[in-house]
């Protein structure tokens, strides 16, 4: 399931909602990204996340399918927020559900690597008296 939304979410509720649908889930791996208070040696006050929503849904669905082909996944959940987010707020949750630990953790990392590299989101980071558009480090593989 892919959700792209402005509002915050409860991690445990979101995971339980999916887990209850699958009695064979033995492992759930998660990545949670937060807005941190320091970046590029500057004090961050907030960020604004822009998204190309139609394409983001499509590209995240594609990567979930790839992960499900590569590993024996039972389900995948991605929630990515957009709009204004303050320090300490959640940005993204990726949760992968499988029977065994290695499949879920490998798939979770795979999805996050892709998301960082290709998913059409842009962070504008605000400091006390200026701002900067961020660029993710490019992966070589």
């Amino acid at each position: 399931m892919i959700k792209i939304q402005e509002e915050d979410f409860n991690i445990e509720d979101e995971i339980n909602r999916i887990k209850l649908q699958h009695l064979n889930v033995g492992a759930v791996s998660t990545f949670i990204g937060y807005v941190r208070s320091l970046n590029n040696q500057q004090k961050v006050t907030s960020i604004n996340l822009e998204v190309y929503k139609d394409m983001a849904y499509k590209s995240l669905e594609d990567i979930c399918l790839k992960a499900q082909e590569k590993w024996n996944m039972i389900d995948v959940l991605i929630i990515h927020r957009f709009g204004k987010l303050n320090v300490k707020e959640k940005i993204v949750l990726v949760a992968t559900f499988s029977m065994h630990r290695k499949e879920s953790s490998d798939a979770c990392n795979f999805i996050m690597d892709y998301l960082k590299k290709d998913a059409p989101f842009w962070k504008k980071e605000f400091y006390d008296d200026n701002y900067e558009w961020l660029e993710n480090t490019r992966l070589t593989n």
């Binding site: 990204g33 996340l49 998204v51 190309y52 394409m55 983001a56 990515h80 940005i91 993204v92 996050m112 998301l115 960082k116 590299k117 290709d118 998913a119 059409p120 989101f121 842009w122 962070k123 558009w133 961020l134 660029e135 993710n136 490019r138």
Partner: peptide, 10 residues
């Protein structure tokens, strides 16, 4: 068509 600068999600 969409034109993008480098992305920074996650």
């Amino acid at each position: 068509i969409a034109l993008f600068p480098p992305v920074s999600g996650g």
